[in-house]
Amino acid sequence: RQGFVPAAYVKKLDSGTGKELVLALYDYQEKSPREVTMKKGDILTLLNSTNKDWWKVEVN
């Protein structure tokens, strides 16, 4: 499932696989259909980080 999360809630990881991955630093509950819920410690695939406030991710 793809959607947006606050950029301040995730940290980029060095995956070494060519995929950009991020680590969820905090729990986040989606507040609109365009967002996704994540739990602290989740590893997500980063799809787009051009917006400084909201990053598009895919929940694996």
Rank of each mutant, 00 (worst) to 15 (best):
R1S: 06
R1N: 06
R1K: 11
R1W: 06
R1A: 06
R1L: 07
Q2T: 11
Q2L: 07
Q2W: 10
Q2R: 15
Q2P: 04
Q2Y: 08
Q2S: 11
Q2G: 06
Q2V: 13
G3F: 09
G3H: 02
G3I: 04
G3S: 02
G3C: 04
G3V: 04
F4Q: 03
F4H: 05
F4D: 03
F4K: 03
F4A: 02
F4G: 01
F4T: 02
F4Y: 14
F4W: 15
F4I: 06
V5R: 00
V5L: 03
V5M: 01
V5E: 00
V5G: 01
V5I: 08
V5Q: 01
V5N: 01
P6L: 05
P6I: 04
P6E: 01
P6N: 03
P6V: 03
P6G: 02
A7G: 04
A7E: 03
A7Y: 03
A7V: 06
A7R: 12
A7L: 02
A7W: 02
A8S: 14
A8P: 08
A8C: 13
A8F: 08
A8Y: 09
A8M: 12
A8V: 10
Y9V: 05
Y9F: 13
Y9W: 07
Y9E: 01
Y9N: 04
Y9L: 12
Y9T: 06
V10Y: 01
V10Q: 01
V10H: 01
K11D: 05
K11F: 09
K11W: 09
K11A: 11
K11T: 12
K11R: 14
K11L: 14
K12N: 05
K12D: 04
K12P: 08
K12M: 10
K12W: 07
K12S: 06
K12H: 08
K12I: 11
K12L: 12
L13Q: 05
L13C: 13
L13A: 04
L13F: 11
D14G: 15
D14R: 12
D14F: 14
D14Q: 11
D14C: 15
D14S: 13
D14I: 12
D14H: 13
D14T: 14
D14Y: 14
S15C: 15
S15E: 10
S15L: 14
S15W: 14
G16C: 14
G16R: 10
G16I: 14
G16Y: 12
G16T: 14
G16S: 14
G16Q: 13
T17F: 13
T17P: 14
T17C: 15
G18S: 11
G18C: 14
G18Y: 10
G18W: 09
G18H: 11
K19A: 11
K19D: 09
K19Q: 12
K19Y: 10
K19R: 14
K19C: 12
K19W: 09
K19T: 12
K19G: 09
E20C: 15
E20T: 15
E20V: 15
E20S: 14
E20I: 15
E20A: 14
E20P: 15
L21R: 11
L21N: 05
L21Y: 15
L21G: 03
V22K: 00
V22T: 02
V22Q: 01
V22S: 02
V22R: 01
V22G: 13
L23R: 09
L23H: 04
L23T: 07
L23E: 12
L23A: 05
A24T: 04
A24N: 00
A24Y: 01
A24M: 03
A24H: 00
A24Q: 00
A24W: 01
A24V: 08
A24F: 02
A24P: 00
A24C: 11
L25E: 04
L25V: 07
L25A: 03
L25N: 02
L25S: 02
Y26G: 05
Y26N: 09
Y26L: 10
Y26M: 13
Y26S: 08
Y26H: 11
D27F: 04
D27A: 07
D27H: 06
D27Y: 05
D27M: 03
Y28H: 04
Y28P: 00
Y28E: 00
Y28C: 02
Y28S: 01
Y28D: 00
Y28T: 00
Y28I: 02
Q29L: 12
Q29C: 12
Q29D: 14
Q29P: 06
Q29R: 11
Q29S: 11
Q29T: 15
Q29G: 07
Q29M: 12
Q29W: 11
E30M: 13
E30F: 07
E30S: 15
E30H: 10
E30T: 09
E30L: 08
E30N: 08
E30Y: 05
K31G: 07
K31D: 06
K31C: 10
K31T: 12
K31M: 11
K31Y: 05
K31H: 09
K31F: 06
K31S: 09
S32L: 07
S32T: 12
S32F: 06
S32W: 06
S32Q: 08
P33Q: 08
P33G: 08
P33R: 08
P33F: 09
P33C: 11
P33L: 09
P33K: 10
R34E: 12
R34N: 14
R34H: 13
R34D: 12
R34A: 12
R34Q: 12
R34M: 13
E35Q: 12
E35R: 05
E35I: 04
V36K: 02
V36I: 15
V36H: 04
V36M: 11
V36Q: 03
V36R: 02
V36W: 06
V36E: 01
V36S: 02
V36Y: 05
T37R: 07
T37G: 09
T37V: 03
T37N: 07
M38Y: 01
M38L: 08
M38S: 00
M38V: 09
K39E: 06
K39Y: 11
K39C: 10
K39P: 01
K40H: 05
K40R: 12
K40Q: 10
K40Y: 04
K40P: 03
G41H: 05
G41I: 01
G41E: 02
G41D: 05
G41S: 03
G41A: 03
G41W: 06
G41L: 03
G41Q: 02
D42N: 06
D42K: 03
D42S: 07
I43E: 03
I43Q: 04
I43T: 06
I43V: 12
I43Y: 05
I43G: 01
L44W: 04
L44Q: 01
L44A: 07
L44D: 00
L44V: 05
T45C: 09
T45D: 05
T45V: 15
T45Y: 12
T45A: 10
T45R: 14
L46G: 01
L46C: 05
L46Y: 02
L46S: 00
L47R: 04
L47I: 14
L47F: 03
L47W: 04
L47N: 02
L47T: 04
L47K: 05
L47E: 02
L47G: 01
L47D: 01
N48G: 06
N48W: 07
N48K: 07
N48V: 08
N48F: 07
N48C: 11
N48H: 07
N48I: 07
N48E: 14
N48S: 13
N48T: 07
N48D: 15
S49D: 15
S49R: 09
S49C: 12
S49Q: 10
S49N: 09
S49F: 07
S49H: 10
T50S: 15
N51H: 12
N51F: 08
N51A: 08
N51P: 05
N51Y: 08
K52S: 12
K52V: 12
K52C: 10
K52P: 15
D53R: 15
D53S: 12
D53W: 15
D53Q: 13
D53F: 15
D53H: 15
D53T: 15
D53I: 15
W54H: 03
W54I: 03
W54A: 02
W54M: 05
W54P: 00
W55M: 03
W55C: 02
W55Q: 01
W55Y: 07
W55E: 01
K56W: 15
K56F: 15
K56Y: 15
K56V: 13
K56Q: 12
K56E: 13
K56R: 11
V57K: 00
V57C: 02
V57N: 00
V57Q: 00
V57L: 03
V57I: 06
V57G: 00
V57T: 00
E58V: 08
E58H: 05
E58C: 09
V59P: 07
V59N: 09
V59T: 15
V59G: 07
N60F: 14
N60T: 13
N60M: 15
N60Q: 13
N60D: 12
N60I: 14
N60S: 13
N60W: 14
